[in-house]
C-alpha cells in the first residue's frame, strides 16, 4: 500500500479470507456454464478455435481467482476515536472516512452464499448517498460487534445534518 492510503497512526483490521472463497465461488458459478457449453461444442465439432476460446475463458477465470484473493487482502477497516476508515481496491484505490456522528444507520446483511461461508456485510449510511462505506466479509460475531460499537459511538456523537 502506498502512503496516502496508509496513514501512519492507523492499524488496519482485515476481513475474513472466507470472503475470497465466497467471491471465487460466485465467479466460478457464473463462468461454469459458458465454459461447459464451449467444451461441449468443441467436443462435438472438434474445431480448434472453440477449444482455444474455452481455454482463454478458463485462464481468465484463473486470473480472476488470483485477483480476488489479492483484492480481499486489500480490504481494510479501522476504528479511530472519532471516525471509521474503510479502504479497498488494488488498481483503483479508495479510502473513506466516516465520522461516527454522521452515521444515520448501519446495515448488516448476509445473503445465502455469504451465510454458507459464515460472513456478513456491514454498511454505514450517512445522509449522503455517495458514502460508500461497505465492509464485506466480516465474521457474523465481528459484524454484530461492529454494529453495536458503531451505533453506540454514533449516539454519543450524534449531530444534526
Amino acid at each position: 500500500m502506498s502512503e496516502p492510503f496508509d496513514p501512519a497512526d492507523v492499524t488496519w483490521s482485515r476481513v475474513s479470507p472466507r470472503l475470497a472463497a465466497a467471491r471465487i465461488t460466485t465467479t466460478c458459478i457464473v463462468f461454469a456454464l459458458p465454459i461447459a457449453i464451449l467444451v461441449v461444442i468443441a467436443v462435438l465439432t472438434g474445431e480448434l478455435w472453440v477449444w482455444v476460446s474455452a481455454a482463454v475463458l478458463a485462464l481468465f477465470v484463473g486470473w480472476l481467482v488470483l485477483l480476488t484473493r489479492r483484492q480481499v487482502r486489500a480490504i481494510g477497516y479501522a476504528e479511530r476515536a472519532d471516525d471509521l476508515l474503510v479502504r479497498k481496491g488494488l488498481m483503483f484505490r479508495q479510502l473513506v472516512v466516516v465520522p461516527y456522528g454522521r452515521m444515520q444507520y448501519v446495515d448488516v446483511t448476509a445473503g445465502p452464499l455469504a451465510r454458507k461461508f459464515g460472513i456478513a456485510s456491514v454498511q454505514l449510511h450517512t445522509a449522503s448517498p455517495a458514502t460508500t462505506a461497505t465492509i464485506d466479509g466480516l465474521p457474523p460475531h465481528e459484524a454484530a460487534r461492529l454494529r453495536e460499537r458503531l451505533a453506540s459511538r454514533g449516539e454519543a456523537r450524534l449531530a444534526g445534518l
Partner: peptide, 20 residues
C-alpha cells in the same frame, strides 16, 4: 460542519504520477 464523510480515490495512472 456540513461535511458528511470524506473519501480519497486513486486510479492506476494517478498512482504512477503520484496523484490522488
Amino acid at each position: 460542519e456540513r461535511t458528511q464523510s470524506l473519501g480519497l480515490a486513486q486510479g492506476p495512472l494517478q498512482r504512477r504520477l503520484g496523484l490522488a
